[in-house]
Nucleic acid binder design. Structure first.
Lengths: 335, 335
DNA sequence: ATTCGCATTTAGATCGTTCTAAATCGAGAA
DNA sequence: TTCTCGATTTAGAACGATCTAAATGCGAAT
């Protein structure tokens, strides 16, 4: 902003009223008389007045700005989540400060300080791997409303996420229906609540269905990591007839790795992903997955934060999307 | 921010100096004496002082905030671009306001007004489809530094993008080397500079290589759109032996559509994408594509804006990444 | 002792808004 | 005519920083 702004004062001058009155018009207060309002609004339009929200915040402590911290912008699950957040915030005329923690708690701290300096009204945080359980408390101590999303640390706060326990259950029951009896789980090494939840779901689903656990293999959360793990999967003591994957990226990588190893995914080994990212339709064979509605989670997180801003005394709330199985070709009926 | 802030005044009080001195310390001015600086810094740390950047901006007109407007958050090209921008901005201690225009010029206008209200230092804009050529001028009129990215409208401004003309040429020469002689182009319906550029590249490459133009087919910029266009491609008057696609998403969709229609991509018809998104490795067959380094473009855009903020009189600059061919299996040697 | 120059510190105005408390205006009641 | 009351409008002090211009302290030069 090099150009100098049109200010309330100038509008007031032009309209022959006081600054305070113009301010009331801007804020759509019912106090101003109809004719005054009209005249002032007209002049504001003419002079291209833009309210300075920063200056406003200085007085009324509301910046109409919220911060979002994600651990990565490559995995499309997070970007879809982000798009849901942005959508709701834009609708409420709020603005989104975006930052990427790269799953590093130190960077995450820096970002939080930066956000604090910018006076955000609140934060939606997907905690970085290794975030200590005291962080939500610290944030609360700053008087900064917080919603956790997708991952969770510390004592209960507002939280929007997905029910991966149910999701894994859906996937497992589907595999059973398709005739599979020995299932492996392709997990990740990074310790997050998201990982724990899926492993819990896996254990529970094994118990409920009586399926044989062929083993748990860990991979880096990348395409190559998963491709490389194909060999380990194939070398498991009890050779699985299906693999359930931490998410679609790993599933897609695994399928590529399997094919490289001479094992045709779908035909020789069923593969199921989680999240149902757009890429699930583009793999070959198209990937059976469990849809988590990432944008929906983003929208929920945004609404939770909006609610919290309206009422800071409300008890913490959890908003969880229900997963939906999407059957494609990577998990055909066993012959 | 419910809690009341620790202010300069309070720090000054505690340190027994004036507000002005503390301000100098905060801004790392060389004017303050070493011992004063130390004492003040220590007290700031103790009292958990956080500088209010909004208040600062009111005086010094620099918010350390920049806006980024992308037309969509689903296509990972844009999110990778975004991640590049965020990375550089975070390094410079700036904060990124993110908004999604959904390729709608009206929303784009609203966003710009919102950004204006928030006093952003500048904007990185990927113009929505249908953006009028006068927009950059209007933005300049507000005194808002602008960098266009990926797409471009109006008279020259700072611009960071990719050289799709060269990219298409690379792809075409590769196809020729692989023995293909009749090539079709799968384009999109939305009119953007990105589209024009690729079509220009296509025409130029045809002329340079003497390849036969099998025709141009338009599709929606979605996976399904491309899949549906497979039929049209196969029905072209001169049946192509290779298809060059607007981007990887279309290429992946096309491959799925071809397979549905009984035509094996790679074997029966070569397919080449543009952008080299991560998904190019996950399709089957893995997709030959031309890497555009989206995060790199984002970083360039961020640096252009930083430069512009430092010197608003500098002449407009263009920063273009050079494309790199990535050969995979979707474009094998013709037998 | 006085003056000068340099390094350091500071008072006070200012940025553009909102808030508080009080002023002003008309019209109907007394 | 004067008073009261609700409806409007307003002056002036915030908010938390930065800027300008001037003040202060101190050792060296005169």
């Amino acid at each position: 902003m090099q150009q100098k702004r049109v200010t309330l004062e100038e509008i007031a001058q032009a309209a022959g009223v006081s600054r305070a009155t113009v301010s009331l018009v801007v804020r759509k207060s019912p106090l101003v008389a109809g004719h005054t309002r009209e005249r002032v609004e007209q002049i504001m339009a003419q002079m291209d007045y833009v309210r300075d929200i920063g200056a406003a915040r200085l007085r009324n402590r509301s910046s109409q700005t919220i911060g979002v911290i994600v651990p990565n912008l490559v995995n499309s699950f997070f970007t879809e989540f982000l798009s849901g957040v942005e959508e709701v915030m834009a609708r409420d005329d709020r603005v989104v400060l975006l930052a990427n923690s790269h799953d590093d708690p130190r960077r995450q701290d820096e970002i939080l300080q930066r956000f604090r300096g910018h006076g955000v009204d609140g934060v939606i945080l997907c905690p970085a791997v290794g975030t200590g359980p005291e962080l939500p408390g610290r944030i609360a101590g700053w008087g900064m409303p917080l919603v956790q999303a997708l991952r969770e640390v510390g004592p209960p706060t507002d939280f929007a996420g997905a029910d991966y326990i149910t999701a894994v259950g859906l996937a497992m029951r589907h595999l059973v229906e398709q005739g599979h009896r020995r299932v492996a789980f392709l997990s990740v090494s990074a310790r997050t609540s998201a990982r724990e939840e899926r492993l819990t779901g896996y254990a529970r689903a094994l118990a409920e269905t009586g399926v044989e656990d062929a083993g748990i293999v860990e991979a880096d959360l990348t395409w190559e990591g998963a491709a490389q793990s194909a060999a380990q999967i194939l070398a498991l003591h009890t050779r699985p007839d299906a693999v359930l994957c931490f998410n679609d990226v790993l599933a897609a990588g695994l399928m590529a790795g399997l094919r490289r190893a001479g094992c045709e995914p779908g035909r020789d080994l069923a593969v199921v992903g989680l999240d149902d990212l757009p890429l699930a339709e583009l793999t070959y064979p198209p990937l059976t997955s469990v849809a988590m509605d990432a944008p929906g989670i983003g929208r929920k997180a945004a609404r939770l934060l909006a609610r919290r801003l309206a009422d800071d005394a409300a008890p913490p709330e959890r908003d969880i999307v229900v997963p939906r199985l999407v059957v494609r070709d990577s998990s055909p009926q066993k012959v």
